[in-house]
């Protein structure tokens, strides 16, 4: 009395049809508007008048004009001769440890704080605002006329720092990096705070009964327990620093004199200002490769969660 189609094979086919029906809208949009463009960018980056070459990559990496240099820049002094890629690197070297550590320490301090959810919410607000507005605010707080920081520096007698930071090559990158700590701390704090809340209270209480100081508890119990979260925060922050664009555009336009350019900004210059799509694509691919190297850690971890 078995009906037609009642077999293990038909079951398998049915399950596939079902799965792909659920996936269809997502796969359609992703292929047209995400996967195809990614492939397209790679192909454009490798194309030049002589056919397929690495010419665009070589040109982009060896470029020395201040606004578009990736590595070494011929800028007119005031700032070190660094190109966009090195700016990203400096950004990462300062911003990742600073934000990660500050968020971690603050997250543990918050366990003692009255009104900690208010503190968390206040610090997180800067994560919610559009990043261009973040860039404008950075410009605002470092503005020579109305900004708090230049006034403060003036009050301290540091005349060199009592002017609009974003307008001078010596200080433009620094103002952006400091500003990005302000913008991004909420993320680090939120993730760390969730991780700290997950530590069983009994661990910390037991340590306290054993006579451990707050510092020892932090060092030997809290830090190891939240370490996976810390790594995640560090990698996410690094990814954000690599892709950074909006705040640079809004605060300094990469200037003055190319002193605060970043990879994504150079890519945009090639695309929108120079209309050189090959070089724009090559810059984008370089940026992609760097992000994927960093993201590999997160992908591996996500798949690790899978297997458990």
């Amino acid at each position: 009395m078995s009906r037609v189609g009642d077999s293990p094979l038909s079951l398998k086919i049915k399950e596939h049809v079902r799965a792909y029906l659920f996936l269809l809208p997502a796969l359609a949009l992703l292929s047209v508007f995400v996967i195809y463009p990614i492939a397209g960018t790679i192909s454009i980056s490798l194309r030049s008048e002589e056919g397929f070459t690495l010419g665009n990559y070589i040109a982009v990496v060896t470029e020395r004009s201040p606004t578009k240099a990736l590595i070494i820049s011929e800028n007119l002094g005031g700032a070190p001769p660094w190109g966009a890629l090195l700016h990203n690197a400096v950004w990462i070297l300062v911003h990742v440890p600073a934000t990660t550590a500050l968020g971690l320490v603050l997250a543990y301090m918050l366990t003692h704080v009255y009104g900690r959810s208010v503190v968390k919410s206040l610090i997180f607000v800067s994560m919610v605002i559009p990043m261009v507005v973040g860039g404008l605010i950075i410009r605002f707080i470092f503005d020579g006329q109305v900004g708090v920081i230049p006034r403060l520096m003036g009050g301290l007698g540091l005349e060199d720092l009592a002017r609009t930071w974003t307008a001078y090559p010596e200080t433009s990158l620094a103002s952006l990096i400091i500003g990005s700590i302000w913008l991004w701390l909420g993320f680090s704090l939120t993730i760390h705070s969730a991780a700290v809340d997950n530590i069983p209270r009994s661990y910390i209480e037991a340590a306290r009964i054993d006579g451990a100081s707050e510092l020892q508890i932090f060092r030997y119990i809290v830090v190891p327990a939240v370490w996976p979260a810390t790594l995640t925060v560090a990698v996410m922050t690094l990814l954000w620093d690599l892709k950074i664009f909006d705040i640079v555009y809004a605060a300094t336009q990469g200037g003055p004199g190319g002193s605060s350019t970043v990879l994504a900004y150079v890519m945009w210059l090639y695309f929108a200002r120079a209309l050189d799509y090959g070089k724009a694509a090559a810059t984008a691919v370089i940026l992609t490769i760097l992000t994927l190297v960093a993201a590999a850690y997160l992908v591996r971890r996500s798949l690790g969660v899978e297997k458990r």
Binding site: V34, A39, F271, A284, V299
Partner: peptide, 13 residues
Amino acid sequence: VIMAIPQQTMVIP
């Protein structure tokens, strides 16, 4: 992987 890819990688095409 798509989650990690920057927007810059898609815009030209």
